[in-house]
Nucleic acid binder design. Sequence first.
DNA 1: CGGCGGCCTTGATCGAAATCAAGGCAGACC
DNA 2: GGTCTGCCTTGATTTCGATCAAGGCCGCCG
Lengths: 232, 232
Amino acid sequence: MTFREIFERFASRYLPGNQSDAALLRYQSLARAIEAKPDSPVRLDENCDHLAFVCCGATKLVAHASGGREQIVAFHFPDELVVVPARAEHAYTLSSVKGSELLVFDYQELLDLARNDPLVLRMLLDCSRKSLIRCRNKSLALGRKTAAERVASFLAGMAVRIGMPEDDCVFLDLPMSRRDIADSLGLTVETISRQITQLRSLDIVSTVGKSGVRIDDLRGLEARAGYLIASG
Amino acid sequence: MTFREIFERFASRYLPGNQSDAALLRYQSLARAIEAKPDSPVRLDENCDHLAFVCCGATKLVAHASGGREQIVAFHFPDELVVVPARAEHAYTLSSVKGSELLVFDYQELLDLARNDPLVLRMLLDCSRKSLIRCRNKSLALGRKTAAERVASFLAGMAVRIGMPEDDCVFLDLPMSRRDIADSLGLTVETISRQITQLRSLDIVSTVGKSGVRIDDLRGLEARAGYLIASG
DNA sequence: CGGCGGCCTTGATCGAAATCAAGGCAGACC
DNA sequence: GGTCTGCCTTGATTTCGATCAAGGCCGCCG
């Protein structure tokens, strides 16, 4: 894809339709297109925040702690926005999970340009609010849920975000590896594997190759996800 | 404190100074003051998001999972804003940790009123970005850090937020109980207690009564916090 | 003053997930 | 077709923090 195509996709989705050509050009001049290869972190200036638009593929936002430990803090899919924070006590890197095309902005520059544009500000606010809710749900899972519940809520969440309805079930083509799932759920690959095996033996999911997961019993999956239902 | 006083404190901190009296009144008409007693959740309509301004005291935002399990997702101190999400797969409640005075808005109503006010929107965006960063750091801690590291980073974080410098150390008067700390760090009270005991025996902190913690060796504390330093 | 009731601390044991250690499987390349 | 390599699965053992079970401390109130 060309830079123009990527930028246009971003603009049509996230910039208000009434922008003048000049305004669009100003946004365009702040953007940088990046083609990200699987698992290699996107090189960004660590001293400032960035905003990335995922045009195609899938990305992971990774938080780094001492000793090389990594926690995936969020996955992002096409047409979504990610805020990548500057380095502080911890470093954050954005990586592709499967090969992606991204459009990257310096967050502050973008905000300065949009400083008086309520539509753009509301869009940013909305994206930030959604990320915050996802992150809080993840904190709950990491802090208080069992391995079985984490895997179930992960799959149920993916079903909503990238599931393809099929007969009376949902098919998932997971772009991320078992290792990525483990790093996202605060578990190990072995535990992920065992949990998926167990879901299979309960006829809740079936697997197709390494990346295909068909959710045969979404209710059953949600029932193991630790969600609050009625009296919870 | 009277409603007026609380609202004025909020307005002076978060509403741009150039607002007309009429505009201020519109904001004021959306606000509700609430006096929150320790540990009893603030009653809010679960069907919509809310924004709360903590005027005094300290609050916790609690996420609820099945089986009565709770995870504290964020603490908030005076002059801070919290977004309390509507109920979905999980419920979120805001409680006081020590007795607080709050100003509460329906988030959507507030956003509608501020829809064309870039200054207010930027303020909301900024508050949302800060919460997101804290929440991501918490996810990293919950997913990948040991009990010792979680307690150390908790104390180091509190030192920044509510610490009182004193000689060459920092004094903390923790408003929350051990149980709250445990629910925030995804651990148990017993583990918190043991970790603090260990920090005491390493001369990194000393404790004064139940709520007082003096950080005698901030470097030492940070060194155990799992932060990324240089080569990490 | 004494006894009561919350928290907090400490110790002993248990258990869920990590770690260690083999295989198994499938796509890539010769 | 073979074999190589990376990812995934399965099994055996270990470990960190949870759980279970006593006490200790302190403020509160009679």
